[in-house]
């Protein structure tokens, strides 16, 4: 018995750090392959910027997966929130602006997008927690709803010509450090505090680990489940705002497929699909590992077809180890 304990503890510790080891290994590999070129400050800055928006989506879906849920609606909800944010930040003299002739203070697009994301989160959460819909199905439905709303709201047109103040939210920087990176650090810190140091955060792990036991332990499983989707929705709202600000536009293609990127990233980062396991540091490492792969292959000029192939394999391998690690215990 003792040995088994030792053994499994050893494995657990090793597996805890596999994400780190993978990340560092990739970093080394890339620095060797590019003779260090890929890891200059400019390159790293590019990488961090590129992954910043996805980090928000990953933090959101990471929390959801900890509660043993899933969210397929991320891409289109971010697309919708980006469009909402952009629509309130268009130059008033732009003739095809959604609110042509009107200009709004800077907080309006941000608040509107975050509210839109939050509402979608509540909708998802309500369906899943109280309506008892399987998360996969509920968010599949709301994904389509978000896409529909986005097309209706923008009349399928590009929401462009955004004002410079709004664009500066993402495009600006503090000294050499781009704003986006600062936002990511703040968001990751807040989510970390939440998951690690609050009651509700702890409850998320309990619900994901064993929802029946959580209920018996006096946890309001329904309310907490609804809230996790709500919080994720808020993060998607921020993601949408930052994305629109960074691209200077939003259209119906914005953030398409982000759900898969985000889910893949947190899975690579050790957030288990079996629920109840995952850390903020893991999620962030996952995002940057996937980013590094993307970035490295694009840096090395690997054909995009092969990039897809490599990414696919990495996701499968990550999930394979995840399942091996947790699903077959006992």
């Amino acid at each position: 018995m003792e040995t088994k304990k030792l053994l499994s503890d050893g494995k657990r510790i090793a597996s805890q750090y596999t994400t780190w080891v993978t990340f560092v290994g990739l970093l080394l590999l890339l620095s060797i392959l590019t003779k260090g070129n890929a890891l200059k400050w400019n390159s790293i800055r590019n990488l961090l910027i590129a992954e910043s928006v996805r980090s928000f989506a990953a933090l959101g879906v990471g929390m959801i997966i900890i509660t043993k849920g899933i969210d397929l609606s991320i891409g289109y909800v971010v697309c919708l929130t980006a469009s909402v944010a952009a629509s309130f930040a268009q130059n008033p003299d732009y003739s095809s602006a959604i609110y042509a002739g009107q200009s709004f203070p800077l907080f309006v697009p941000i608040v509107a997008a975050v509210a839109a994301g939050g509402l979608f989160g509540l909708f998802n959460g309500y369906l899943i927690a109280y309506g008892k819909l399987p998360p996969f199905i509920a968010t599949l439905g709301s994904m389509s709803i978000a896409k529909g709303l986005q097309l209706i709201y923008t009349k399928a047109a590009v929401v462009g010509s955004l004002n410079q103040n709004f664009k500066n939210i993402s495009q600006g920087s503090v000294g050499p450090v781009p704003n986006l990176i600062i936002y990511v650090i703040i968001a990751a810190f807040i989510v970390w505090v939440f998951l690690r140091h609050t009651r509700q955060g702890t409850h998320f792990y309990a619900i994901g680990g064993n929802s029946q036991a959580a209920r018996v332990s006096g946890i309001n499983v329904e309310r907490d489940l609804m809230m996790v989707y709500f919080y994720a929705g808020l993060l998607y709202g921020i993601a949408g705002t930052l994305l629109a600000s960074r691209l200077g536009l939003a259209n119906s293609l914005t953030a398409n497929g982000m759900e898969l990127d985000a889910i893949a990233a947190v899975t690579v980062g050790g957030v288990s699909q079996s629920g109840g396991v995952g850390t903020v540091s893991g999620m962030m490492i996952g995002v940057f590992t996937m980013g590094l792969i993307n970035y490295g292959m694009s840096f090395l000029g690997v054909d995009s077809y092969y990039q897809q192939l490599v990414k696919g394999f990495i996701i499968i391998v990550a999930v394979y180890f995840d399942m091996k690690k947790y699903a077959r215990r006992n």
């Binding site: 792990y205 309990a206 680990g209 064993n210 036991a213």
Partner: peptide, 28 residues
């Protein structure tokens, strides 16, 4: 409906009593 298999002993023990162990800021 008893154990949280992937949580440690400490968390498994304290999960039902968290409300009694909150700081003024609401942190555990």
């Amino acid at each position: 409906s008893g154990i949280f298999p992937l949580m440690n002993i400490s968390s498994n023990t304290s999960i039902a009593s968290l409300r009694e162990y909150l700081s003024k800021l609401g942190l555990l």
